[in-house]
Amino acid sequence: MAQAQTTQAGTEAHGGAHAADAAFPPFATETFAGQIIWLAITFALLYTLLSKLVLPRLSGIIENRRALIAKDLDEAAAMKTRAEEAGVAYEKALAEAKGRAQALAQETRAKLAAESDAKRKALEADLNKRLAESEAAISAKKTEAMSHVRGIAAETATAIVERLTGKAPAPQVVEAALEQAKA
């Protein structure tokens, strides 16, 4: 008992400060200087290595990628513009071709119409001519026929009188009678 007490007292006497430190290590002031020095060395080393070696490398990777993506996007935009331009040119060419085709169609149609028109006109003229010829022929025949009517009338009248009287009248008398009847 006494011996134990002595030991305890001896421990306390042995290192008063040490006993207090042992109670709570983070407040053990005699470790401070060493920790600060080593922290300074470590942190200075860490900062130097990171700022001179690691971070430029890391930032470089990220920056490279950003630049590459930006470049690719620009290229894509340029290509899109070119494609749009090509599209516009195609539309224009198409419109031109359409216009030309329409003009050609119009021309052909006009030409065909003119041709058929001419043919029709020629045919019509031909027909008209033949019609006129026929009409003329008919009218000539009619006139000719009409000129024979007097003769037939005179012959008929002579024949009738001859039958009735048994004697043929004089042609002058018949003529005069016909003239009278006609009047």
């Binding site: 470790t31 060493g34 920790q35 080593w38 922290l39 470590t42 942190f43 080393l45 860490l46 290595l49 990171l50 070696l53 690691v54």
Partner: peptide
């Protein structure tokens, strides 16, 4: 050089 120093250096080494 203590265990504290060792783990400071260790942390820096792990990072770098």
């Amino acid at each position: 050089f203590t265990n504290s120093s060792l783990f400071m250096i260790g942390a820096a080494a792990v990072i770098v």
